[in-house]
Design a protein around this nucleic acid. Sequence first.
DNA 1: TTAACGCGGTTCATTTATTGAACCAACTTT
DNA 2: AAAGTTGGTTCAATAAATGAACCGCGTTAA
Lengths: 259, 259
Amino acid sequence: MGTALNALKLLDFFSASRPEIGLSQLARLAGANKATVLRHLRSMEDFGLIEQNPMTKFYAIGPAAIRLAALREAANPRLDAARLRMQTAMQEVGESLHLSFLEKDILQTALVVETTKHTVRVSLDPTEVMPINATASGLSMLCYGPPALKSQMNTDQLQGFTKETLTDPDQIRAQIETIRRRGWSNSNGSYELGVHGFAAPIFGIDRVAIGTVAFAMPENRATDNRKPAILIALHTLAKDLTAIFGGQIPDSFPPAFHP
Amino acid sequence: MGTALNALKLLDFFSASRPEIGLSQLARLAGANKATVLRHLRSMEDFGLIEQNPMTKFYAIGPAAIRLAALREAANPRLDAARLRMQTAMQEVGESLHLSFLEKDILQTALVVETTKHTVRVSLDPTEVMPINATASGLSMLCYGPPALKSQMNTDQLQGFTKETLTDPDQIRAQIETIRRRGWSNSNGSYELGVHGFAAPIFGIDRVAIGTVAFAMPENRATDNRKPAILIALHTLAKDLTAIFGGQIPDSFPPAFHP
DNA sequence: TTAACGCGGTTCATTTATTGAACCAACTTT
DNA sequence: AAAGTTGGTTCAATAAATGAACCGCGTTAA
């Protein structure tokens, strides 16, 4: 029961690491008859959800996926869903947070949710670019983003913002190693003195970070006894945002954040 | 025959202007039985391609569309398809072209295809930002992009690059009116002296421009007798790129470009 | 050289899920 | 209060999905 669903379920066998599949292999994967799978594929090909490479005869996701996503995005923008999710995180933790995305090779702020629980808050310009070496978000991106970013760090001159800013590539590489173990990153006055940040990556479909979320708060509120709650909220938040943006969390990513 | 296809075809009734549809209305639109439509919707809802608003009971495109598009994009990036299409346009016309997208409120170059037919060519930095008042692409975007761009033009100071640059908002508004009639825009040395550009918009799903394509050539090759061929190539190119990026051309857009 | 095996795709009798008219119950409009 | 919506259900009739066997082709192994 549910022929259409059976057809759609075939799409789940495609992934970033297995972007195209042959008829027999797909039938094997789905545990279904080749004739059945073929008819389903043909139906979806008619609609454009599936595309067959005429040379290799392999099947892949078709262009209709783009159309539908554009439609979904117009009616239900991912940024709106992200804002909603971030607002509940703000309620839980009580601190401001911001969402950034890697565009070309700079980390652009896309969304800022300010805390309503404190009158003293970190104010963030939504048009600001996050320096990659001076913010928790930037370090997270260096750790989990495209490897090209890291190599680029060597050639570019790193800007210092405060006396805390990391400007030595070797220092940063060491920091990245601890981030890779923990999953989360933090910064303490490295961009603006007195501001503490906690960031986590948001992954794309290929399990490479496409952006980051971060909590930002005055140093005096970043106490050790608040840290566990912040980290728990940050972890589930990063997981949910990754889902909202259609991404996949790599297997190597920690299943929980620990101080 | 093709139940899965019939189910998928329901998705085509959703659009930017009709993002959610009730059961009865969708059955009427599709000319199918309510029971049939309901079962199809439930199948697709299971998969996540459809989402029902629990309050209004209306149906809309679901989050799986985002996932699938991310998959498609990873395996078959739209920029690659765009580059291919632009390369054939370059072969047809023999001139360099570039593709730009509106990001936040600046026009970022995303792709440059240089001509292989001339040794004298306009060289474009792929990281460059297109000034909105000084390039054919910028004017096209002002005309067909988000209305907010136009109102912003009044508050910001417009930069002059050459003696040809338009810096008076009233002048630009007049120019936009002729672009709206023609569909295409051009520039003659307004960014760099001696460079002539022809641009057309690329539309999003909501029929608002999300980017532009433009041919750029030395002034002396922008002759009247080459213009018709350039404009024909530009029109089909803009149409194809709009399709590649999942957009829709507005009904009011000219079906052909005339000098 | 040949046999075995894999592939994508087809065929067709059997079966099973799809279909659609009629029908609810709950609202709105007239 | 009657008539028309709506979303959703039921079930007998039927049309479409299914799967084992098969085909032709190319690759691999004997």
